[in-house]
């Protein structure tokens, strides 16, 4: 029983990491219909910039508390990523606004490589230990089930951001302009919406989300490295598709479901298949679920039928 509970906790924690990254993916997709493969790498840049800021702050003001340091990390890395997101959108994607949809997709993969290589040149090939400012000392809310404060924080942060995003998109004038642009950016322009500006803002918000995700992922695993964005990026993309890409609540749900399926799958697949399969089939389990969902609900768990996008 303890083991099952622990696996559920593990799944929730991994799932919340996936959700956090998936939110940015899904928002950009929802507005633009572009799968921004560079999202994971913006997250990586966010983590490394925050690391740099935290190390600098630790040196300058050694008396600062851990929360202030996390704050400084975020305050520096969020604007940096926003700027990066804007620059990427302006230089790489805007020119391709009316190109066939494969072109921006390939460009996104190119941007991803570019950011990785840049980070490799700036921060080197080695691993950087990310100061674990939020405690990683395990607590036992239930006897035998371990969870750390940083993991709880990750879960709360991703739930909080999801709520904030939903509010922005559904309740504000900016959100209305975003939804109009998503539906048809030419018609939105006729109605007085500056579509280019709205798309730029979408990227800026998406990149800010990536920066926060980067800091949370790096604090959770205690490591920052120039390739750290790749795998979470891929998993988050899967999570976004599972939940219904373009749907903000779906990204959260998809992430949690994917995390749970992976961890329960790895924990019990051997018993359930009478030793025929083992934990190296962890990912297969996740993709079987994804396949099944997409067969029966092609738009994902929470996806509505999307109006025909370009």
């Amino acid at each position: 029983m303890e083991t099952l509970l622990q696996q559920i906790v593990n799944g929730l924690v991994v799932g919340s990491v996936y959700s956090l990254v998936a939110l940015g993916y899904t928002m950009v997709y929802g507005i633009l219909g572009l799968i921004n493969f560079a999202h994971g790498d913006v997250m990586m840049i966010g983590a490394l910039v925050a690391l740099q800021a935290i190390l600098f702050a630790q040196k300058m003001w050694p008396s600062l508390g851990p929360l202030a340091l996390v704050g400084i990390g975020l305050v520096v890395s969020i604007p940096t990523c926003m700027l990066l997101g804007y620059v990427v959108e302006r230089t790489a994607y805007r020119r391709l606004r009316n190109a066939p949809r494969l072109a921006p997709l390939i460009t996104a993969i190119g941007v991803s490589f570019l950011l990785q290589t840049l980070a490799m040149i700036i921060w080197g090939r080695g691993y950087h230990s990310f100061p674990q400012l939020i405690s990683t000392v395990p607590m036992q809310p239930i006897e035998g089930v371990f969870v750390t404060p940083v993991q709880i924080t990750t879960l709360l942060v991703s739930a909080g951001l999801m709520a904030a995003l939903l509010l922005v998109v559904n309740k504000t004038p900016l959100g209305r302009a975003m939804r109009a642009t998503a539906e048809n950016h030419r018609v939105a322009s006729l109605m007085g919406v500056d579509a280019n500006k709205i798309i730029a803002i979408t990227f800026i918000i998406g990149s800010a989300l990536a920066a926060i995700a980067g800091v949370m992922v790096a604090s959770n695993y205690g490591i920052a490295h120039y390739t750290m964005g790749f795998l979470p990026g891929l998993k988050a993309f899967t999570a976004a598709v599972l939940g219904g890409i373009g749907n903000i609540g779906g990204a959260m749900l998809g992430g949690i479901v994917l995390g749970l399926v992976e961890s329960i799958g790895a924990g019990y697949i051997e018993t359930w298949s009478f030793g025929f399969l083992n934990s190296s089939y962890q990912d297969i389990f996740a993709f079987i679920i994804l396949g099944a969902v997409l067969i029966f609900r092609p738009t994902g768990l929470l996806g509505e039928r999307v109006a025909d996008r370009a």
Binding site: T3, Q6, Q7, N10, G11, V13, V14, Y221, M228, F230, L231, P232, E262, S263, I264, G265, A266, G267, S279, S280, Q282, D283
Partner: peptide, 14 residues
């Protein structure tokens, strides 16, 4: 696990 994984909690719990 794999040579790209970062999370091993499921295996470790088992």
């Amino acid at each position: 696990t794999t040579d790209k994984a970062v999370d091993f909690k499921a295996q470790l719990t088992k």
